[in-house]
Design a protein around this nucleic acid. Sequence first.
DNA 1: AAATAGTTTAACCAAACGGTTAATAAGTGA
DNA 2: TCACTTATTAACCGTTTGGTTAAACTATTT
Lengths: 227, 227
Amino acid sequence: METMKEQQTANDGLTTEEKILAAAGKVFTRKGMAGARMQDIANEAGINKALLHYYFRSKEKLFDAIFEKTFQQFVPLMHLEFDSTDDFRQMLRNMVRLYVMMVKKSPYLPSFLLNEMHQNPDKIQHLLLKMKVSEFPKRLQIRFSEAGITGDPRQLLLTLISGVIFPFAAKPLLMPLFFENNEKIFDRFITDRSVFLEDLMLRMLVNREDDDAKLDSDNSNFNTNAL
Amino acid sequence: METMKEQQTANDGLTTEEKILAAAGKVFTRKGMAGARMQDIANEAGINKALLHYYFRSKEKLFDAIFEKTFQQFVPLMHLEFDSTDDFRQMLRNMVRLYVMMVKKSPYLPSFLLNEMHQNPDKIQHLLLKMKVSEFPKRLQIRFSEAGITGDPRQLLLTLISGVIFPFAAKPLLMPLFFENNEKIFDRFITDRSVFLEDLMLRMLVNREDDDAKLDSDNSNFNTNAL
DNA sequence: AAATAGTTTAACCAAACGGTTAATAAGTGA
DNA sequence: TCACTTATTAACCGTTTGGTTAAACTATTT
């Protein structure tokens, strides 16, 4: 072995570089590029500030690494469902559940990306090219055609994503307004919303000429009784 | 008149304080509290940096003023429609159109609020109390009852708001992905989306037992042909 | 063990930042 | 015109911040 580059499990079973990335992820996603301090990250990682510059030359380089890593958590999620599930309706259900699960796990992620993409849109551009996201709309269109569905797939997709993400992104506002500052109530709402959105996605595809479409369950959240 | 506090139309027909607020609004909404520099704001307003501290003692005070002002643009918008329009369906249509118009006019606003509310949720709390937003959910529930509609009104409301806001909040990401970096295509999509969302709101209220509900037009964006 | 390469730290630095000060300019009332 | 308050500016100050440096520590190789 020539230089033995690999560093081994320092104390927590984590490389120093891994500790830095984990810490930077936390701090950056919470405070954003401008709000995060290198000292905060160093503290969070339990190391000296200079080490940050030793592993990643500058704050921007470190941020880029985090931004890219964070962004990459989204993309494969999208691609996946397109290929996996044959049944279009089931695919929509899965997507809703997948997104909910994901955002539940990292609730700071959406507003972080939503905010930082405005600061330097060029970075987004670069990332989109790096991964193969450009073919995304076409594949969506194909699934639509295969399922015999007309209309703009982008409308459905944006409704789906925004519907899942928004309650988390606006949580600090909604919490006292809609959920009595009670985390349990919020969680219950999210559970309900997952079902609601799944139902909504299917409902989008149903119109009057299509009443025999097999709606698996009857837990539709909205019923018109009068008017 | 004792002290003659009011300052008159300096040059642009704007008070210095107004110029500061306008400049601060621009800079803060684009770069956020942490990213904005007092010097930037001073430059944008075409004044000396010390003047900022003369009118608003600190950066935080200035930010609070902007944050509050920005936030206040949202709230009356919500309240309004609840009282104005009698017909529930028409109310939903109006809300969609109103939100689209508003976000079109100030496209940086959503991601600004979405981001800053995470930094200091206490400020949001304070603002919510200051205006009378707490009664908001109840009034929504009442409109639902009046219209004979069952289900959770929060689900509908969040779907509506997120559906309008998200395309703007995620614009830098969507622009190359869905809209070929073409502003015209984006605008057309938003126009379509307004119609789409109006339709979606109504569609939420329709189920199989209610086929005779008068759907005004047939421009439903989604039709199932097969499957 | 000596030499060498990789890792970590304390101390330091220059620039940027929010904020202050003291002086000047401009308007107001007598 | 004179006194007085308000508005505006240039220069300055202390702190924070991203980044550097040189030395120390650790491990690997010979």
